[in-house]
C-alpha cells in the first residue's frame, strides 16, 4: 500500500467517524454515507478500476472522470448552500423587521 493510499483511507474513515459522532442522523443517511465510504476506499485501493468505468463513459483516464464528477458535486453543494443562506437571510430579515416595528419610537403626540 502506498503512503497516499493510507492517507486517503485514513481521511475517509476520519470523516465517516466525525459525521456519525457529530450528526446523529437518520439510518438512510448512514447507509448512503457507508456506501460512499466503502466505494471511496475500494477505488483508493484499486485505482485502475476507475479507468474501466471511465472508458465505458468515453473518458480516457479514471482520474479525469473523478475530476469531472468532483466539479459537478461541488457546484451542487454551492447551489444548495446558497439557497440555504438566502432562506436564512429572509428569516433573519423577518425577525429583525418584526422587532423594529414592535419597538418603534413614537412621536409624543401619537
Amino acid at each position: 500500500m502506498n503512503a497516499i493510499q493510507i492517507l486517503l483511507i485514513g481521511g475517509v474513515i476520519a470523516i465517516f467517524i466525525y459525521y456519525i459522532a457529530r450528526f446523529r442522523s437518520a439510518l438512510v443517511d448512514l447507509i448512503i454515507l457507508s456506501l460512499f465510504s466503502i466505494a471511496a476506499i475500494f477505488f483508493i485501493l484499486y485505482p485502475d478500476e476507475t479507468t474501466v468505468i471511465a472508458n465505458k463513459l468515453g473518458v480516457q483516464r479514471g482520474a479525469d472522470l473523478l475530476f469531472y464528477c468532483c466539479i459537478l458535486f461541488f457546484l451542487f453543494i454551492v447551489v444548495k448552500l446558497f439557497a440555504r443562506v438566502r432562506r436564512l437571510e429572509q428569516k433573519l430579515t423577518e425577525v429583525i423587521r418584526q422587532r423594529a416595528k414592535d419597538e418603534a419610537t413614537v412621536p409624543k403626540d401619537h
Partner: peptide, 8 residues
C-alpha cells in the same frame, strides 16, 4: 416628531 425604527 418622527417614528424611529431600528434594525439591529
Amino acid at each position: 416628531p418622527v417614528f424611529l425604527l431600528h434594525h439591529e
